[in-house]
Amino acid sequence: MMEKQDKIYVAGHKGLVGSAIYRKLLAEGYTNLVVRTSKELDLRNQASVDEFFASEKPAYVFFAAGTVGGIMANKTYPGNFIFDNVIMIFNALEAARKNQVTKFLYLGSSCIYPKDAPQPIKEDYLLTDKLEETNKPYALAKIAGVELCLSYNKQYGTNNICLMPTNMFGINDNYDSQNSHLVAALIRKFYEAKVNKAPHVMLWGTGTPRREVLSADQLADACLFFMQNYSGNDIINIGSGEDITIKDLAQKIKEISGYEGELQFDATKPDGTMKKQLDVSRASGLGWTSNDTLDEDLEKAYHDFSDNYIQYTTKQ
């Protein structure tokens, strides 16, 4: 069991998921936390990573670092997405092995699964069909990280575990107007429509596709649970266990924002995949399920964005 005084390294503590893990650990009384910004520690630099692990000697690692982005970023910088994400986990995991880290938690992504995987998506569907082309370099990097974690367990007897989260949102999300994901994009659209008194908000497609979303705080709860309660070579999906239509999700955020204009859909634009949901039965069988707090989590994220609008929109 991870004790309150154990030294814990949270990689990627400034990002959406890493900052949620960091907050969760502090809230639960873990105070011996080690963090570094990307400027302080470039995880792509093997010598720097080796020096960090040798000097700090963390007992536990939550690895939420990475180069991330939306479709446009993946399309424009595919080399960066595969190189950065492969070399960061490879450097960190090898340094952790050499310095006898007690346990290492690696966060993958639901994009590792085939584009046309049956729904809901089981962990066993990994590598059974073709990936989505738009983020294939990122997905392959995440798959390589999973394989390295599990291969090290088999060869060296390390204690690495891998969680695959669904679509995330929350505090410290990316609200870039061209590069944000679903919930963040909706939050920004409704906030700016309200401020600018726009008569309507137009969304692509029919609004009927279904998506599963989960707050980063819920994922952080799962990370702590599995760090404390699981060891093994099975990857584990982390999600809400529920999905929602884009129209209903947009309506929830519209109501939270107080925007009084119309919500419209451009049915001439593509809907994309009609359903994307993870099968979370493995996680629930091991003892973790998400709390049904979607409305509360959406409200928290919306008000965090509105209170910090300038900060979020000048990050672009």
Rank of each mutant, 00 (worst) to 15 (best):
M88D: 01
S231P: 02
Q100R: 12
A193F: 04
I246N: 09
E260I: 06
A139Y: 13
A283C: 02
L16C: 02
L203E: 01
M274T: 06
Y191H: 14
K7L: 10
D234P: 00
N153R: 07
A117S: 11
I82C: 01
E255W: 04
S306E: 14
F265N: 04
D129W: 01
Y312M: 15
T134P: 00
N196H: 11
Q178R: 14
Y152T: 08
A144E: 07
D217M: 12
Y309C: 11
L127I: 00
V35S: 11
V34D: 05
T293A: 06
K75Q: 13
F169H: 06
S257L: 08
A92N: 13
Q316N: 12
Q277V: 05
E147K: 15
P118Q: 02
H13S: 15
Y113H: 08
Q251N: 11
L41C: 07
K300A: 09
A92K: 01
K14N: 14
Y138I: 00
D129A: 14
A222K: 12
D304W: 11
A95F: 10
G12A: 12
D6E: 07
Y60I: 00
S290L: 01
A73H: 14
E260M: 12
I171W: 05
D84R: 04
I21A: 15
I238N: 06
M2C: 07
Q46L: 10
S48Y: 08
G108E: 08
D279K: 04
A301M: 01
Q264A: 12
L163F: 08
I143K: 08
M2W: 03
L219A: 14
N74T: 02
G66E: 06
K24E: 14
L214E: 09
L249I: 02
F62K: 05
E296T: 05
A193L: 02
Y302G: 05
Y125K: 06
H200M: 12
Y175F: 15
V280L: 09
Q178L: 15
E51P: 01
S215H: 11
I238G: 09
G239C: 09
K130Q: 15
D292R: 12
R36N: 09
V195M: 14
E192A: 05
L25F: 12
I143R: 08
A198N: 04
M274C: 05
S284D: 10
M72I: 12
G170I: 08
K315D: 07
Q228G: 08
G12Y: 10
R211N: 02
L126W: 10
A65E: 00
T206R: 10
A20E: 04
G29A: 13
D304L: 03
N99V: 02
F104S: 07
Y302W: 11
S55D: 15
Y22N: 14
K115C: 04
S38W: 12
Q100V: 00
G258Y: 03
E262Y: 05
A216G: 15
R188Y: 11
Y106T: 00
S38M: 09
G287D: 10
S110M: 10
T293F: 00
Y106L: 03
V17T: 15
T289L: 12
D307N: 15
G70T: 06
N308S: 13
G69W: 06
I82K: 04
F104C: 03
E260R: 10
A64F: 00
L127Y: 04
L214M: 15
I236S: 07
S290P: 00
G157P: 01
I235E: 06
L148N: 03
A95W: 09
I236L: 08
A220C: 07
Y191C: 09
A185Q: 13
